Amino acid sequence: MASSYPVVLVTGSDLAEEALSLLKGFSVVYAGKQPSEDELYRLCQQHNPVAIIVRYGKINARIMDAAPHLRVISKHGSGIDVIDQKAAAERQISVQSAPGANAAAVAEHTWTMILACAKAVIPLDRRMRQGYWDKSTHKSVELEGRTLGLIGLGAIGSRVARIGKAFGMKVLAYDPFAKSFPDECESSSLEGLLQQADVISLHCPLTEQTRHMINSDRLNQCKKGAILVNTARGGLIDDEALLAALDNGTVSWAALDSFAVEPLTAPHIWQSVENVILSPHIGGVSDNSYVKMGTAAANNVLKVLAEPVKRAATLS
């Protein structure tokens, strides 16, 4: 039976209670974990939502056309590359995001990854469990006095910069769109950053201009033995080029929280690579960020739906 309330479709299986309380005047429909395009299309046909809150999956023109009353697509987070923005604009559907809502969580996860690489946390743990005691032979990487290179300096990159400065690192940042740079870091060209950085961390969106920005040419510019961390978007890195750089020692460690194709399922390219640390795109998922992203997404829905409906121009 169709709901008497306008529908908000959530491309996931849950939403924070605080977000749900903001959507009391709506019927919230969940698409479930990792919904496919066909499942989202069917749900849009069935419920004709006025809004979609995007947690997982991609929203394309086909899905939009299945919901004639759709007015807003609101990302549960900051990355809107999973939404066909051109198709949305053509249909006068607003695309919203929640920048900064998960900044603390992603920055913390970035540093978890950096430290795990620099201090060889995983291999040391593995060796200990196998009965080895490597105190006389092991030397970790000390970060004080080293250079941290940040590609992207938004809410997340700025937090990572402050923590890097607290560790006593020199912090370089490449961001052609930044209007100013905080005291914790210096502006740099991308080439200069790659040549100097001992640790490189990605914090930029995925666009046609940034896709595969970390490729064989760029990796060949890196300082020998650099650590590369990606808690942004998987498509920023050419996987085959990174694999080669890890093999020849150009990159000593990589830590990846996002991938070009998700979910990452076995068999996959990184499965047998020992100097790569993997996590399933959970950098932005914490107890607090779950609430902040949910409430921001819900508030964005309410904001757009409160605006007058824009009508397409007609010929007289």
Rank of each mutant, 00 (worst) to 15 (best):
N215H: 12
N288P: 02
S136P: 00
L242G: 07
A88K: 03
R162S: 12
A232P: 04
I80L: 00
N288V: 15
S78C: 11
M128F: 11
E90P: 04
N60K: 13
I214Y: 12
V273Y: 05
V72D: 02
Y30M: 10
C44M: 13
D247C: 14
A244M: 08
G234I: 09
T314K: 15
D257C: 09
N220S: 15
A178E: 07
Y174V: 06
L315M: 14
C204T: 15
L302T: 04
I73M: 03
D175I: 08
P182H: 08
P68C: 09
M64S: 06
S78I: 14
K135G: 01
W111P: 03
D81V: 13
S289A: 15
D257H: 05
G12A: 15
G157W: 01
A161N: 07
L219K: 10
R162N: 11
A31E: 04
R162P: 01
L40Q: 11
I227V: 14
R127Q: 14
V251H: 00
A245T: 06
G149M: 11
I163P: 06
L172F: 09
H268A: 11
S136R: 12
A296Q: 01
A88M: 09
I200T: 10
P263F: 07
D287C: 04
S279L: 06
G131S: 07
V50H: 00
L228R: 04
A161G: 09
H138R: 06
